[in-house]
């Protein structure tokens, strides 16, 4: 098995006729993903490498039975695209777009949480279930089928760690880039929960970075609820403490948000944290060998 995307995925790509949309939709299809439709307003009837284009997401879903939407729409139109995807009724929405205003995403998130659809991203590289489906922009050659579930806030760091895992002969059940923005649709806890329920995931690798307190919250959650072993990596030890203008952040902050603080929170809950991507892969190898 795998999580979120697999052979049952029927993908509609919003913004398919743009440069990036066309390039990556075609690559996803070449990987074996069932890309059933694309959407660009005003371009219905065209096709991108054989993928039919529709004017609206609803048309695409009605015609093709798409159950997953990928958003490749520029930031100032992406909020509209997200609401359109939500209203089309697809189960899963993956938003690659970077640069959506935080206030817009607060509203989308609040709306989304009233239903039970899943949003991954925005500002994320997508999801790959190696050998089954790839939805997004990940360079597929570094991923191999296997039993590690990888979840990360950073796209390029995900590739780096997957390459290190590949060098040790370790593959993944699924790899999920949750995105680096302050408001993302799914958290570490959401994805770790899915991996824990997946019988083909034996180990979870969680890749975090400075800022926010999602890693700290995940550490608590893992200790209390997750039986699958977890190893982690945190980027940003060399990030200098920055300027802080207001008091509001400090007043309500429960965590320092630093890499060191996150590492300590995870280690306190028994999650081993590697100091560099190579070492994380070695920790994963040890954890798998111990099973």
């Amino acid at each position: 098995m795998s999580i979120l995307v697999d052979k049952n995925t029927k993908l509609v790509v919003q913004g398919i006729t743009g440069r990036e949309g066309a390039f990556h939709a075609t690559r996803n299809k070449a990987y074996g993903t069932n890309v059933v439709a694309g959407v660009t307003p005003g371009k219905a009837g065209q096709d991108v490498e054989g993928i039919p284009v529709f004017n609206t997401v609803r048309d695409a879903v009605e015609e093709t039975g798409a159950n997953t939407a990928m958003v490749f729409v520029p930031p100032r139109f992406a909020t509209d695209a997200l609401y359109e995807a939500i209203e089309s009724g697809v189960d899963l929405i993956i938003c690659i777009t970077e640069g959506i205003p935080a206030h817009d995403m607060m509203q989308v998130y609040t709306h989304l949480r009233r239903g039970n659809q899943t949003l991954i991203g925005p500002n994320c590289p997508g999801i790959i279930s190696p050998g089954r489906a790839s939805v997004g922009i990940m360079p597929t050659q570094v991923f191999n089928p296997g039993r590690v579930g990888l979840v990360s806030r950073s796209g390029t760091l995900t590739y780096q760690i997957s390459k290190e895992l590949a060098a040790l002969g370790i593959g993944q059940s699924s790899v999920v880039g949750i995105g680096g923005d302050p408001v993302v649709g799914s958290s570490f806890i959401d994805i770790v929960t899915r991996f824990d329920a997946d019988p083909e995931t034996d180990l979870i690798v969680m890749v975090g970075e400075i800022g926010g307190n999602e890693e700290e919250k995940a550490a608590e959650f893992i200790a209390a609820n997750v039986s699958t072993p977890v190893v982690s990596y945190i980027a940003g030890f060399q990030a200098p403490p920055g300027k802080q203008m207001g008091h509001a952040g400090a007043i309500i902050t429960g965590s320092s948000g630093t890499a060191q603080g996150k590492k300590e929170a995870l280690e306190a809950k028994g999650v081993r944290v590697g100091t560099n991507p190579t070492e994380v892969a070695e920790l994963a190898q040890q954890a798998l060998a111990a099973q």
């Binding site: 307190n213 940003g236 990030a239 403490p241 400090a250 309500i252 429960g254």
Partner: peptide, 22 residues
């Protein structure tokens, strides 16, 4: 009270949505 954490790190500018203090 909920525990947000924000702004303490200037790299927030780069990794979690760039922001600017006036």
């Amino acid at each position: 009270m909920a525990l947000p954490s924000d702004g303490a790190i200037c790299f927030v500018n780069t990794s979690q949505g760039r922001r600017l203090d006036l």
